[in-house]
Write a protein that binds this DNA or RNA. Structure first.
Lengths: 230, 230
DNA sequence: GCAAAAACATGATGGCTGTCATGTTTGCTT
DNA sequence: AAGCAAACATGACAGCCATCATGTTTTTGC
């Protein structure tokens, strides 16, 4: 069992404003479990009974489309919370959370988290900020999907992956391992297309392959390829 | 000046849980103005100084894409609030709010609304629910844009318009007037394409044109065309 | 009410990108 | 270590849909 007071992510998470007493209460109320790669934390269509907090690992949130293809709508790393969208709106989960590498997650029952939100208005504000940020990213993705060609979207996906998971110690290897299919399911394109475009990026020196990982020697070049100006 | 206590939307809005004292304070602090068609309430890139509450009228929120085309990301009707995403995250507006018909809008200064949020946890919860709902819609739109053909998306746009603005008294005319270009900017397609598809829908009896408005004699048919199963 | 602009409409064309097919490589499982 | 499945890769092909062009209708501003 992980102690919230000792959690490394504590100060970077939505719980950064909690007092020790509140954190202690959290620790006493929560559960903790190991999620292996490809296992689900929650599934689309089910009702939420609490909030998940990702202590370590990496998770993808995806929606299953009519045609059977996954659309990845969010990615989570250590310190991120999961399942708040459905929990707060009182709806079913609209996406499935699946570990893309072995992860540990804590589960905070609905009662406990809702009480905390009511008492602690700065936690409430943090959650609003979180949702607002998610909404900004989602809406910007809508615009991209509607207006940008696949190649630009692919470059942007790499930039997003770097934003979320950062580089490894070498300062140029994106610190996450995804299959080409998963990358396609972020970009919103066919697997073959993403394979082709990544190969093209490699040939033009934009990126390099390092096993399953992707190296970005020059971020600026990627920014140009993604056609983003800010 | 509109009195919040007398506002018709009061009980359907995020302010439904406010006490009379709080509403009075709101009324005293707020401003009120008329926004003519095609005028902006706020513009992408600017910093928010408060929250807008749409007392009457209809508003589109759009992002300007690199190629100069607008992507409509949200639509608002009387009773809806505007500008909360940027206000709560402390970021610049990421979309422009433009009246699609003459509207009246109240402005609540940042201080006033933030104090209310801190005091009234059920207002805070309502805002979280609002954001969660927006996020659900946005993510579902991402999946649609990535996976569905234009024709299905167009049908879905009509369903969404009906959801938001409802039918007129005849129970089949969608109660909003949009140009073909605006409809395209919701669906994420070229204007010519949306014109063609709407004409096709008309020819196959899915919809009828009533001036600039669109009539839907049979919602179920549209649901089938949109390929939604829930 | 008239001119100009915006909106609507329709045809032709081409390219992007999804799909299908096939083969190779990688990585698990027993 | 062999065998099998998943992942990666590449070519061929077609079709959806954006773009361009052009013309008509409707709306707007003076």
């Amino acid at each position: 069992m992980v102690d919230c007071l000792l959690c490394e992510s504590r100060h970077k998470s939505i719980f950064c404003s909690l007092e020790n007493g509140e954190l202690l209460e959290l620790t006493q109320n929560k559960g903790c479990s190991i999620i292996r790669k490809k296992q689900n934390i929650f599934k689309e269509g089910f009702y939420p009974h609490g909030l998940y907090c990702l202590h370590s690992g990496k998770v993808k949130l995806y929606q299953m489309a009519e045609n059977g293809r996954e659309q990845i709508v969010r990615l989570a790393k250590a310190g991120d919370v999961l399942g708040y969208r459905a929990l707060l709106s009182g709806e079913q989960y609209t996406s499935t959370a699946e570990a893309i590498e072995e992860s540990t997650v804590c589960f905070i029952p609905k009662d406990a988290i809702m009480k905390l939100i009511e008492k602690n208005s700065s936690l409430a504000l943090n959650i609003m900020r979180l949702l607002s940020g998610d909404l900004r990213k989602a809406e910007s993705k809508i615009t991209d999907l509607a207006q940008k060609p696949v190649k630009e979207r692919m470059a942007e996906v790499l930039l997003v992956l770097k934003e979320i998971y950062g580089f490894e110690e070498d300062n140029q290897t994106i610190a996450v391992t995804l299959t080409r299919e998963e990358i396609s399911n972020i970009a919103g394109t066919a697997t073959e297309t993403s394979i082709r475009i990544l190969a093209e990026f490699k040939d033009s020196g934009l990126i390099q392959f390092d096993g399953k990982k992707i190296k970005v020697p020059d971020l600026k070049k990627l920014l140009v390829a993604a056609n983003v100006h800010d």
